[in-house]
């Protein structure tokens, strides 16, 4: 299979993953970091779904005339991973709410500055 369009999805996964990763590292705002984390995890969902796709394959239905199925297992796995991702983001946002209460800001440099003064 040629690199293009055969592996296009994987290239998109890498671009998306690095976008999220970059946002996590470079952003100062904690909420933006969480958004980055979400994009990063989203790339992995896309990666798993792509891996399960069979060219010209249909949904796995046991019926006459369907012989070429896509692999349904990655979908099931990623359903679990999506739930985990939501839970992670929920915990992160809950932490940010409490950080905002305790520090009055969600900017990382201001938080570090306040901790130094104490």
């Amino acid at each position: 299979m040629s690199e293009f369009p055969g592996l296009l999805n994987y290239w998109l996964v890498i671009v998306m993953m690095m976008t999220g990763f970059y946002a996590m590292i470079s952003r100062n705002n904690l909420i933006k970091k969480v958004i980055g984390l979400s994009i990063f995890q989203g790339a992995v969902y896309l990666f798993y779904i792509t891996a399960g796709k069979v060219f010209a394959g249909t949904a796995p239905i046991l019926e006459e005339g369907f012989s070429n199925y896509s692999n349904p297992l990655p979908h099931v796995l990623i359903l679990t991973a999506i739930v985990v991702g939501i839970a992670t983001v929920a915990v992160a946002l809950a932490l940010i709410m409490r950080i905002k209460d305790a520090y009055g800001t969600v900017e990382e440099d201001e938080i570090q500055h306040q901790d130094k003064i104490r």
Binding site: M24, K33, T88, I111
Partner: peptide
């Protein structure tokens, strides 16, 4: 809180 948040980000990565 900030320690937990930092651990969350790195742990999730």
């Amino acid at each position: 809180l900030t320690a937990a948040f930092r651990y969350l980000v790195l742990g999730s990565i």
